[in-house]
């Protein structure tokens, strides 16, 4: 797949497909396509996602898991948009390289990429009634080879972490990371409120590997 970003503030992606070439995209993102592009459907089972994995994601409640992906087969052009402002990134994944991309940001990917929904991190918060609630950072795991296209909300800041090197980001700031990057949630003091401390969850991302953080929420 040849993928190009079109436009600035709210970019679209123009994918150019050769005859027989297939890409997968979340349903509902298509802007336009040429008539020569065939549309199909690829279920989670066809992608190798087991029912157990799927139900485990579903049981956590907040996941916006896909039931299936729309499949587009060339030759021709097809364009996608996430209807939001932010930078689009086209990443060629070499064989064996795996990225964890925050859910809701995937635009399209080559059919050669292996897909799996994952939970990158989890933590607990207390609601106003003192009840403990689980929070999860859901992500799409994508393993090369192939081309991966996704969109950030806002601008992307990229880091290449050395082994043992750590950066901290807010839980909302996380966009993507290689699977070699360790992700851990720690609580950080934010303010003194009355007799208690107000703490916020902070993601600690530890290398080696590449990390992307985005400036929007």
């Amino acid at each position: 797949m040849q993928a190009d970003s079109v436009g600035g503030i709210t970019p679209a992606v123009l994918a150019t497909l050769k005859p027989g070439e297939k890409i997968l995209a979340a349903h509902g993102l298509m802007l336009f396509k040429e008539p020569s592009i065939k549309v199909g459907r690829r279920t989670m089972r066809q992608l190798g996602v087991s029912m157990g994995t799927y139900m485990a994601m579903h049981s956590r409640g907040d996941a916006e898991e896909n039931f299936f992906f729309a499949e587009f087969e060339g030759p021709g052009h097809v364009s996608f948009s996430r209807d939001k402002g932010g930078e689009v990134r086209v990443v060629p994944l070499p064989p064996g390289q795996t990225w964890h991309l925050r859910e809701g940001h995937l635009i399209c990917f080559d059919e050669s990429i292996r897909y799996q929904p994952v939970v990158v991190a989890q933590w607990q918060v207390r609601d106003a009634n003192g009840q403990v609630e689980n929070r999860y950072l859901f992500a799409d795991s994508l393993a090369g080879p192939g081309t991966l296209v996704f969109q950030a909300y806002g601008n992307i800041l990229s880091f290449n972490l050395q082994p043992g090197e750590t950066i901290r980001t807010s839980t909302e700031g996380f966009l993507a990371a290689q699977n070699t990057v360790g992700v851990q949630v720690q609580w950080q003091f934010a303010a003194q409120l009355g007799t208690g401390n107000y703490q916020v969850p902070v993601l600690h991302l530890t290398g080696p590997g590449q990390v992307m953080v985005h400036s929007g929420l």
Binding site: V6, G7, G8, I9, T10, P11, A12, M30, L31, F32, K33, E34, P35, I37, S79, S81, D83
Partner: peptide, 17 residues
């Protein structure tokens, strides 16, 4: 958002959202 413009010849088709 951004504009994507094109010209269609007679009988030429595209499928759009």
């Amino acid at each position: 958002g951004n504009i994507i413009s094109m010209g269609l010849d007679k009988g030429e088709k595209i499928t759009a959202d």
